[in-house]
Simulated assay, not measured.
Amino acid sequence: MKTVPTTLVKTGRALSWLSSLSLWLAGGGLVVMTAIVAWQVFCRYVLNDSPSWTEPGAVMLMSWFIFLGAAVGVRENYHLGFDVLLYVVPKGGKKWLRMISDLVALAFGIGMIWYGIELVRLTWDTVLPSLQISGGWDYVPLVAGGVLIGLFALERIVLRLAGEPIDDVLDEMPPAEVAAELDTAEIKV
Rank of each mutant, 00 (worst) to 15 (best):
W17V: 14
G111R: 00
H79E: 13
V84S: 03
P175S: 03
I66V: 10
K95C: 02
S50Y: 01
L131N: 08
L97Q: 06
D183K: 00
G92D: 15
G12I: 11
G136N: 12
V4E: 15
A58L: 04
L25G: 04
M112S: 00
A38G: 10
M99G: 06
D49K: 08
W17Q: 14
L122S: 06
A107F: 07
I149P: 04
Q40F: 15
A71D: 08
W17E: 09
G27L: 10
V74I: 14
D125A: 01
M60C: 03
P5E: 12
F108H: 10
G81P: 05
M99S: 07
K94R: 13
E172A: 04
G81Q: 09
M33Y: 04
L85N: 09
I166E: 03
S134F: 13
T184Q: 00
I110C: 09
L161C: 03
W137M: 09
G150W: 14
D102A: 01
D49N: 12
G150D: 14
G135T: 06
V41H: 11
R98N: 09
T11I: 15
G29V: 01
L47E: 08
C43P: 07
W137R: 02
P174H: 04
V158Y: 08
D125Q: 04
L80H: 06
L80W: 06
V140P: 10
L47G: 02
V9H: 13
S22K: 06
F67P: 05
E181V: 00
I113C: 05
G109I: 11
C43R: 07
D171E: 03
D183P: 00
C43E: 15
G136I: 10
T123G: 01
L23P: 05
D102K: 07
L159V: 05
Y87H: 07
V120W: 01
G93K: 11
L148K: 03
G116L: 05
